[in-house]
């Protein structure tokens, strides 16, 4: 089952227009942030706005990535699984932007302060671990790496669940101090549903 899903050569090739459409759509939040900073769309604190937005979009793309195999199992929609790599790489892309914004515009590459921040503040640590969980997934996302790793590839890519849980925790702990966890709660519920769907699916190996 796994091998048939990996190659784009097998049935249900992604139409070029859909691939292109998704590729462009994925760039929109980035362009919005870039233009927003330039043209002062983002209010009084643009640094905060783009930092928040990059984190939001990393999490959103992560959930979309997880949604694709659920859609295949539940609705038989197989095309989504083939778009999964791009969605996952966008999650990683926005996570990289998020981390870079933190290192640059929050800490100004003060590595001592960054080290302290990671050690002393659980929400920063959770965010860092989420990022570190995504890193090997992005690095092994090529078809060559898939082939080379074989069955271990799938095992490795289960790290995406750790990344999702840590990212939600990171968001939760940040918002908790402001007494408003409504947004992280929404992401927690969505992630919970996606994980639950997988648990149910395990009971039906025929998926």
């Amino acid at each position: 089952m796994a091998s048939s899903l990996l190659g784009r050569q097998t049935a249900g090739r992604v139409p070029a227009w859909l691939w292109l459409l998704l590729f462009c759509a994925g760039l929109l939040p980035f362009l919005h942030g870039l233009l927003g900073v330039w043209l002062h769309w983002l209010g009084a604190n643009p640094v905060e706005a783009v930092t928040r937005a990059s984190g939001d979009w990393a999490l959103r793309f992560l959930l979309l990535t997880l949604l694709m195999s659920s859609l295949r199992r539940r609705l038989g929609w197989r095309l989504g699984v083939r778009l999964r790599r791009m969605l996952g790489l966008y999650a990683f892309f926005y996570a990289v932007v998020h981390v870079l914004l933190y290192l640059w515009l929050d800490q100004f590459f003060d590595w001592v302060a960054i080290g302290e921040d990671i050690l002393e503040r659980p929400f920063i640590l959770a965010g860092l671990l989420a990022f570190l969980a995504l890193l090997p997934l992005a690095l092994t996302s090529t078809r060559t790496m898939m082939r080379r790793l074989g069955p271990r590839w799938k095992a490795l890519h289960r790290l995406v669940y750790a990344a999702g849980l840590l990212a939600v925790l990171h968001f939760w702990w940040m918002k908790e101090s402001k007494s408003d966890v409504s947004e992280p709660l929404l992401y927690a519920v969505l992630l919970g549903l996606l994980l639950l769907e997988r648990l149910v699916a395990r009971g039906h190996p025929a998926d």
Binding site: V47, L105, R121
Partner: peptide, 19 residues
């Protein structure tokens, strides 16, 4: 005295780039 979730050593003045 840091806030438990972030340092209070620096601040971003609204309208400024660096802290």
């Amino acid at each position: 005295v840091p806030h438990p979730r972030w340092s209070q050593a620096r601040e971003r003045r609204i309208g400024e780039f660096s802290k």
